Lab assay of single mutants.
Amino acid sequence: HMTFVALYDYVASGETDLSFKKGERLQIVNNTEGDWWLAHSLTTGRTGYIPSNYVAPSD
């Protein structure tokens, strides 16, 4: 899985979304859904959809 880092805080707007904090590391499970990607937080262990423009590839 690709690892990304959150650029901003995001508060989930629905049950399927994943809240995260700036700097949180996320594994992308599925990024074929356009602007919303299914991600797994390496910080909280939770999985949900995130806005793709809130994250950047982590080196």
Rank of each mutant, 00 (worst) to 15 (best):
H1W: 12
H1C: 14
H1R: 08
M2C: 14
M2I: 12
M2N: 11
M2R: 13
M2W: 09
M2T: 13
M2S: 11
M2Y: 09
T3I: 15
T3V: 15
T3K: 05
T3E: 13
T3W: 14
T3Q: 09
T3F: 14
F4D: 00
F4S: 03
F4T: 04
V5W: 06
V5S: 04
V5P: 01
V5A: 04
V5Y: 09
A6V: 10
A6P: 01
A6L: 04
A6H: 00
L7R: 04
L7Q: 05
L7V: 07
L7T: 04
L7C: 08
Y8H: 08
D9E: 07
D9C: 05
Y10Q: 01
Y10H: 05
Y10F: 08
Y10C: 04
V11K: 09
V11A: 09
V11I: 13
V11Q: 12
A12P: 05
A12G: 11
S13M: 14
S13L: 13
S13E: 13
S13F: 10
G14Q: 11
G14D: 08
E15V: 11
T16G: 14
T16S: 13
D17C: 11
D17V: 07
D17Y: 14
L18T: 04
L18Y: 03
L18V: 06
L18E: 02
L18A: 05
L18D: 01
L18R: 02
S19V: 04
S19C: 05
S19T: 09
S19P: 06
S19E: 05
F20Q: 00
F20E: 00
F20I: 09
F20A: 01
F20T: 01
F20G: 00
F20V: 07
K21D: 06
K21S: 11
K21E: 08
K21H: 10
K22W: 04
K22R: 11
K22C: 06
K22N: 03
K22Y: 04
K22F: 05
K22G: 03
K22V: 07
G23A: 03
G23M: 03
G23I: 00
G23P: 00
E24N: 02
E24S: 02
E24M: 02
E24K: 00
E24H: 04
E24A: 02
E24I: 00
E24L: 01
E24D: 12
E24F: 01
R25C: 12
R25W: 14
R25I: 15
R25Y: 15
L26D: 00
L26M: 10
L26G: 00
L26E: 00
Q27T: 12
Q27H: 15
Q27V: 15
Q27R: 15
Q27D: 07
Q27E: 12
Q27P: 00
Q27N: 08
I28G: 03
I28M: 06
V29Q: 08
V29K: 08
V29N: 05
V29P: 05
V29D: 06
N30I: 09
N30S: 14
N30M: 10
N30V: 09
N31Y: 14
N31H: 11
N31G: 14
N31I: 13
N31D: 12
N31L: 12
N31M: 15
N31K: 15
T32N: 09
T32Q: 14
T32M: 12
T32A: 12
T32K: 11
T32F: 10
E33K: 13
E33C: 14
E33R: 13
E33V: 11
E33A: 13
G34C: 09
G34D: 12
G34K: 14
D35K: 11
D35T: 12
D35E: 13
D35G: 10
W36E: 03
W36K: 09
W36L: 07
W36H: 06
W37Y: 06
W37E: 01
W37L: 07
W37Q: 03
W37T: 03
W37K: 04
L38G: 01
L38Q: 04
L38H: 04
L38N: 02
A39P: 00
A39Y: 01
A39L: 01
A39D: 00
H40Y: 15
H40S: 09
H40C: 13
H40Q: 13
H40T: 15
H40W: 10
H40E: 09
H40R: 15
S41L: 03
S41H: 13
S41G: 02
S41Y: 00
S41M: 02
S41V: 02
L42G: 04
L42E: 08
L42A: 06
L42R: 04
L42P: 08
L42W: 07
L42C: 11
L42T: 07
T43S: 13
T43L: 12
T43C: 13
T43E: 13
T44H: 03
T44Y: 03
T44G: 04
T44W: 02
G45E: 04
G45V: 01
G45N: 09
G45I: 01
G45P: 01
R46L: 14
R46H: 08
R46F: 08
R46M: 13
R46S: 07
R46Y: 08
T47Y: 10
T47R: 09
T47C: 12
T47E: 07
T47D: 07
T47Q: 09
G48P: 00
G48Y: 03
G48V: 02
G48K: 01
G48R: 01
Y49K: 07
Y49I: 07
Y49D: 02
Y49E: 03
Y49F: 11
I50V: 11
I50L: 04
I50C: 02
I50N: 00
P51I: 02
P51T: 01
P51S: 03
P51G: 01
P51E: 01
P51M: 05
S52T: 06
S52D: 02
N53V: 09
N53L: 10
N53I: 10
N53T: 12
N53G: 11
N53P: 06
N53E: 10
N53Y: 10
Y54T: 05
Y54H: 08
Y54P: 01
V55E: 01
V55S: 03
V55I: 08
V55T: 04
V55F: 07
V55P: 02
V55Y: 04
V55D: 02
V55Q: 02
A56R: 11
A56N: 06
A56E: 11
A56K: 11
P57I: 10
P57H: 09
P57K: 09
P57G: 07
P57S: 08
S58L: 15
S58I: 15
D59P: 13
D59G: 15
D59F: 13
